[in-house]
């Protein structure tokens, strides 16, 4: 799951591209234009490094925090097969965080610094995980639709320019396809089940629709210029394009089982061939980013408790002559 289209960026930390060596910069950009990958110890502009660390790190945090709203349902999964599948999925998400932290580490930020920045709120994660998962049907909606949205984004990013991130995403996308299938399976079983089950999945979609529409971030018209990031193949598709692609693929799959999308204005305009929808509440989106969503405090507190409770294990296993080396790839 989980890397959203929207990546929080503190504009104050932006570095000046014009300060880079023009010859090196030209060579770097030519390499990307030829479709070659950038590898960890290549020369790269400071802004490229900063943007990639920010993006991969937030993606990693999203995987690890995303495991929480789903993990909470493992003990209450209806039946052994669903429980096994959900355990496997949640384990995958945590494994994805490991792959992504490693990819970000190759750019020079240590794993300890990334986790500290997550816990102290300096570094963000996908907004959707600051909403509660109230019923089993939430597991269906997250596994089916949030994972589907993440796949749209991740498949695009896996064609990007940074080698280690692309390689991690290829492995991740392969595993995500199982997540999507298991989410869709739960969704279909509930939607074609008893009236109570149908009502439960409808209620879950009603609550999750807005966070799903938030997932890809604000419209390109509203967001900061992304031209350089596109040229550097850090950002591979615009927020609007990804949202349109997601709606194209998944609105029919929701409607075919008789579940109603809670937006009366959602329709595909036959002339423009584009989806039209009610603009989601972007103020809420920014409030949740700032930390004021329904579950922000709980997510970080649980994450911190996990690190605190594991401290004695890490300390016991630590060796005096241990010496960290940045991983190769």
């Amino acid at each position: 799951m989980y890397g959203g289209g929207y990546i929080h960026d503190d504009q104050k930390k932006k570095t000046d591209i014009t300060a880079e060596d023009p010859a090196l910069l030209a060579e770097f950009e030519a390499r990307i234009a030829r479709g070659e990958k950038i590898e960890p110890r290549d020369w790269m502009p400071a802004e490229y490094r900063r943007q990639l660390i920010r993006m991969i790190e937030q993606h990693a945090h999203s995987e690890i925090i995303g495991a929480l709203p789903e993990g909470t349902w493992i003990t209450r999964a209806p039946g052994f097969r669903r429980k096994l599948a959900l355990m496997a999925k949640v384990q995958d998400e945590v494994g994805h965080a490991q792959l992504l932290y490693s990819a970000a580490e190759t750019l020079g930020k240590s794993r300890e610094d990334m986790i500290n920045d997550l816990i102290n709120g300096k570094s963000k994660y996908s907004n959707v995980f600051n909403y509660p998962s109230k019923t089993w049907a939430d597991v269906a909606v997250i596994g089916f639709l949030i994972d589907a949205a993440a796949i749209v984004n991740q498949v695009a990013n896996s064609k990007g320019s940074y080698g280690p991130y692309c390689r991690a995403l290829e492995r991740i996308c392969y595993e995500e396809s199982f997540h999507l299938k298991q989410g869709h399976s739960i969704f279909v079983y509930l939607a074609t089940g008893t009236p109570t089950q149908r009502a439960m999945v409808q209620d879950a979609l009603n609550r999750w629709w807005q966070p799903i529409m938030h997932f890809f971030g604000p419209s390109d018209k509203m967001s900061q210029h992304t031209e350089t990031l596109m040229r550097w193949k850090v950002k591979m598709a615009s927020n609007d394009d990804m949202r349109q692609q997601f709606l194209n693929m998944y609105v029919p799959k929701i409607r075919e089982v008789g579940i109603v999308i809670p937006d009366p204005n959602l329709r595909k305009n036959p002339e423009t061939n584009m989806w039209e929808f009610t603009e989601p509440d972007w103020n809420e989106f920014y409030e949740v980013i700032k930390g004021n969503g329904p579950c922000n405090a709980e997510r970080l507190a649980v994450r911190r408790a996990a690190e605190d409770n594991g401290a004695w294990v890490r300390a016991a296993l630590r060796k005096a002559d241990q010496h960290y080396v940045t991983p190769l790839a």
Binding site: N120, A297, R304, E307, R318, Q322, Y324, A329
Partner: peptide, 28 residues
Amino acid sequence: RVSRLELDAVDKQPDAVLKPEEHWETYQ
């Protein structure tokens, strides 16, 4: 199960939870 842990909300600027190299070495 989360409520029973009686967790405090994390301060805005807490001390670093993890010290350098707490996550050990890397292996290929």
